[in-house]
Design a binder for these strands. Structure first.
Length: 135
DNA sequence: GCAGTATTGTATA
DNA sequence: TATACAATACTGC
């Protein structure tokens, strides 16, 4: 399932448990998402870009295959309030990880938008090395 | 195991 | 402001 957004098309994959991954459709591979859940996710994403929805907390995510550290991190980042930001260090201290581990886990995050990594920043308040900046 | 990493804090110029 | 270095935990091969 491809979801058109102002940032370009997003590639969506779902499983019976929930969203398996949602990324910019740069390298589309794997089976296309189908069913009610896929449609629901598409509407949610479009509602997000329409300003009607700040988060995707009601959408089920499939964490199967992810390590506990990543699972906890994603769950925690999803709870970041709208309009607020958290630093890598703060997340690391809360989860008992190192700031670098937070960055590494966030870099491998397959849930673009669903896990608002753009709200995770440096301790100084600067934007982190988000993928959307370059390349 | 080893190298890479979306960090942080301290030191130095 | 910019660079250099050490500590730290997880991902990916």
């Amino acid at each position: 399932m491809c979801i058109p957004t102002p940032l370009g098309p997003l590639w969506l994959e779902v499983s019976p448990l929930g969203v398996r991954r949602l990324e910019p459709a740069l390298y589309p591979r794997g089976p296309e998402a189908e069913g009610a859940l896929a449609l629901r996710v598409r509407e949610a994403v479009q509602a997000y870009f329409a300003g009607e929805r700040p988060d995707f907390l009601d959408l089920p995510l499939d964490y199967t295959g992810l390590s506990p550290a990543r699972l906890r991190l994603y769950e925690r980042v999803r709870l970041v309030p709208y309009g607020r930001t958290v630093s890598y260090g703060a997340l690391g201290r809360e989860l008992g990880l190192s700031p670098r581990a937070v960055g590494a886990a966030l870099r491998a995050c397959p849930f673009f938008l669903l896990v608002p990594a753009h709200r995770v920043i440096h301790a100084d308040g600067r934007l982190g090395g988000f993928r959307g900046r370059r390349g």
